[in-house]
Design a protein around this nucleic acid. Structure first.
Lengths: 334, 334
DNA sequence: TTGTATGCGTTATCAG
DNA sequence: CTGATAACGCATACAA
């Protein structure tokens, strides 16, 4: 690969002059700038950012850790992050933990070895010990969508209590009295928040809670199928289910269909996230929508300005979700 | 950040000894290895891969360029790529061109400045001139899903002619005589191949081709809506449509629903890719399935072994698609 | 306006 | 087995 030395030799100046010319230093005469740039172009020079990063102490890349890139929720975030990062001239290193929380710390170490200038974490579980270590570090990072109470880190989240309330109250307003809940992993903050709010709203309205009508599972369609089948097989089953995310809801939708349970006639169903699947004509899932891509953008913008300005202003951004009523919810049958 | 010098000082050896100990060189005594590693651990040392990359001439990362990460087809590939890359200990730099082909060369330059050890290109258009430049380069790269006839590059693709034939013959076997086609961008090879095969099969069966029943658009739901609306508004409309990908098909599905055109009763619809949307109970799209994640894995495996073995064996991997018949296709009404 | 010397953190070569 | 020393490619403080 061609280096500034090659250019220097070709033009007949010193490497430092080339370096300066290439970064448009005002110290260099227009003429030599022209020369240098022209030769650089001709030789197909591309600045070595490894070397540059080594001396400037920054790699020009940020790390993005997601739980599952095939989940539209995360790929939306990723798109938002990427758009902003590339606008700033940064690269994005993607790490997909595939839902395995224990892999996250490995990925963070990988990213730190690569000296990423900052981290965007979307798959933090609330009790991660390494987040504390990370916080002691000089590397800025920001939590997206899931926050962690054990460390005071900047975050951009959507208020899960508001969202869960919207969902459950919607069902209650429709007349439902028997409402089930299927959560995600028990160690994910948002999962717990949605569950807690669900119970809270039920209590406020004097509705009964049943142990079998609530449970944690996993943020996947498969887990939703399993939990859904279980709940719908109960002798006494709920007339409505609030699923902690859309993937779960889709699993329930699928399994309900298979069991001959009609939606919304026999069962109302509310999801969470409003992934693009949810709006498909044949799906029409009532769900709590979050400004997903915007979250990625905001996180990325904070991170990059923090990096560039070299001082970290705090960010505690709580966006508001809203309910999107579609055709998976209706008043209860009888 | 702590460096090997810090460790060296602490342990009382030279930096080179630390370097060797950390990479388990057989030249170092077990005792000093222990010491070094223990101190490294205690100090929270993470090897600077920028520096390492500079001397070893490799960054330990590969670049992945996709057209739209929110498209499940690409996020599946990304997951396959990431899984393998991380197994090899490599990072993945993600670049999302958002469908803008002209951005691709910018991204490739970005990635080359970052000295990625290899490139996985999933959004190549068939006439990209910079691919020729790239081919002259020492950086290995591989084309996924879309190939480019102007350069002899390794690729892993699915045979689009086979897939398109499966789709169209399925419709013909059902009894359809009036079959439309909605393609993706005209400059994408796979888009053209699917169109060409569509016409070929029609001719083989002596079926009429109508100009208004075929057209290129874009690989998005919005484009599918637009093209679908147009085609379904024709005075004489087809009884079946073959869409060049699932996103387009979903757009058609949506717009058909809105126009009161029932699927499959009034219109049979075949998509392409079998993205996870397609199998949703309420969607049930008949489509041509590709081993998407596997493509990512294969590409990644080829790339990484090419990188590690330092010599590039050619790869022309053509996988076979298969038809997944669901409920969006049926014999024509009359 | 340009050149020289030095350092970023590692690894590799060559002595010891 | 270990330690100096140079080198990777670039940016910059200091000289000229």
């Amino acid at each position: 690969m061609v280096t500034i030395k090659d250019i220097a030799r070709e033009v007949g100046v010193s490497p430092s002059t080339v370096s300066r010319a290439l970064s448009d230093s005002p110290l260099i005469s227009e003429k030599t700038k022209q020369n240098v740039k022209e030769v650089a172009q001709r030789l197909g020079y591309e600045r070595n950012e490894l070397a540059r990063g080594l001396v400037k102490g920054s790699s020009g890349a940020v790390g993005l850790v997601v739980a599952d890139i095939t989940n539209p929720f995360f790929s939306d975030i990723a798109q938002g992050v990427g758009e902003v990062a590339h606008r700033f001239g940064y690269g994005v290193m993607l790490c997909d933990t595939a839902g395995k929380a224990n892999r996250e710390s490995d990925y963070i170490r990988l990213l730190r070895r690569k000296r990423v200038d900052g981290l965007i974490l979307t798959s933090a579980t609330m009790d991660d010990p390494y987040l504390k270590d990370l916080a002691k570090t000089r590397t800025p990072f920001i939590l997206v969508s899931r926050l962690c109470r054990s460390v005071d880190a900047p975050y951009v989240v959507v208020d899960d209590r508001v969202g869960a309330r919207l969902a459950v109250e919607h069902l209650i307003n429709l007349g439902h009295q028997y409402i089930g809940f299927i959560g995600g992993p028990a160690n994910v903050q948002s999962s717990r928040d949605r569950m807690a709010t669900y119970r809270e709203v039920l209590q406020e309205h004097g509705l009964a809670e049943k142990e079998e009508w609530m449970g944690f599972s996993d943020f996947t369609q498969a887990a939703g199928r399993k939990a859904g089948r279980q709940m719908l097989s109960l002798p006494e089953r709920p007339s409505a289910i609030f699923a902690a995310n859309d993937m779960i809801a889709l699993g329930v939708l699928e399994v309900a269909e298979e069991m001959g349970v009609l939606i919304p006639d026999d069962l109302s169903l509310v999801g969470y996230n409003d992934i693009s699947y949810a709006s498909l004509p044949r799906v029409q899932l009532t769900t709590v929508a979050q400004p997903t891509q915007e979250m990625g953008q905001i996180a990325s913008e904070w991170l990059l300005s923090t990096i560039e300005e070299h001082k970290r202003h705090p960010l505690h951004c709580v966006l508001n979700p809203h309910l999107v009523v579609r055709r998976s919810t209706a008043p209860p049958a009888s």
